[in-house]
Write a protein that binds this DNA or RNA. Structure first.
Length: 298
DNA sequence: CCCTGTCAAGTCACG
DNA sequence: CGTGACTTGACAGGG
């Protein structure tokens, strides 16, 4: 099990997702921003290796506006060497990588323009991982999308669009249950229809499931990953006490986390901690998991 | 320096 | 119909 956190390291004082307003766009500004983001990404990955955190989600803002028409210079070529160096570091230290495009990627949208933009955005994510020469275990996780008043038809539309995707995208894409609309059961159905691996989000499942036990549900999702997809990924969080429904915890809830570990114990997976204080909780979780798993193996 | 309106993009719930 | 939430606030202009 590798443990990780998404996008931002709060300790080392740089951001790999710096951006700027579209109206401030210039090629010079863009190149400077991306160069800074890549430097920071490597620093964060170095920190992670030094601290035993070998799973990381790369921010979608690494290359701002990458799928926007305004970004028309060949950034792939400009930064090819840098991407390769970072990818080599990732490979050398066996770091697991994920990316999570934001809510604007809606593969099953009714509006063809939204679908075109979504595929452009997915192509950017796939290009980035390809430029780093990562194998297909580096994943891009998305949600199913909208329901539009007819879930069955909307799932069917997702399946058709997935089947039609170009291979560099399709080989990396995994689908994750969300907290409002598409449950794990829905995602498992999509796997049946298309073969897409299912990324289990334990927190979303608590909010948007029928009480199926986490361990069994995680095992079902694990069965959807092929060997060259890498070992399954799972997203974990708990609810921020007293806060609104879907709010992620500010810091790791030890009791909740140990219960989750116990429930899923026989399974191997890479665990993404979607907790607000980032590497702080990831470090704590790694410590707890190491202890509990040692206990389990004894 | 601090404050805050606004930011490329979609969907849906809520009031 | 307008606003806020989402996985993640933070840029940029004005005071």
């Amino acid at each position: 099990m590798k443990i990780g956190y998404p996008c931002i390291n709060q300790r080392i004082g740089c951001s790999s997702g710096r951006t700027f307003r579209l109206r401030s766009y210039s090629e010079k500004r863009h190149i400077e921003t991306v160069a800074g983001n890549l430097d920071c990404l490597l620093s964060v990955l170095q920190f992670n290796v030094e601290h035993g955190l070998l799973f990381f989600r790369i921010t979608s803002d690494l290359v701002p506006f990458a799928s926007h028409p305004i970004c028309s210079y060949p950034w792939h070529d400009v930064f090819a060497d840098r991407f390769r160096e970072i990818g080599a570091f990732i490979g050398e230290h066996r770091i697991r990588i994920s990316m999570h495009p934001d809510q604007f990627v809606v593969l099953n949208a009714g509006d063809p323009g939204v679908v075109v933009n979504s595929i452009r955005e997915l192509r950017y994510h796939a290009d980035l991982l390809d430029l780093m020469h990562l194998d297909r275990s580096a994943k891009i996780q998305i949600h199913t999308g909208g329901v539009y008043g007819d879930k069955e038809q909307s799932m069917h539309r997702f399946a058709g669009r997935y089947d039609d995707l170009e291979l560099p995208i399709r080989r990396r894409l995994v689908v994750e249950n969300d907290d409002m609309r598409y449950t794990v059961q829905d995602c498992l159905q999509l796997h049946e229809d298309t073969g897409i691996p299912v990324l289990f989000d334990a927190f979303h499942h608590e909010l948007n499931g029928s009480g199926e036990p986490a361990g069994e549900t995680a095992a079902l999702c694990s069965g959807t990953w092929r060997p060259d997809d890498g070992i399954p990924m799972i997203d974990y969080s708990s609810r921020q006490p007293l806060d609104r429904r879907g709010r992620h915890a500010e810091t790791l809830d030890r009791g909740h986390f140990r219960k989750f570990l116990a429930e899923t114990m026989p399974l191997d997976f890479d665990l993404m901690l979607e907790i607000k204080d980032k590497e702080k909780s990831a470090l704590l979780a790694a410590e707890i998991a190491a202890g509990d798993r040692r206990l389990y193996q004894a």
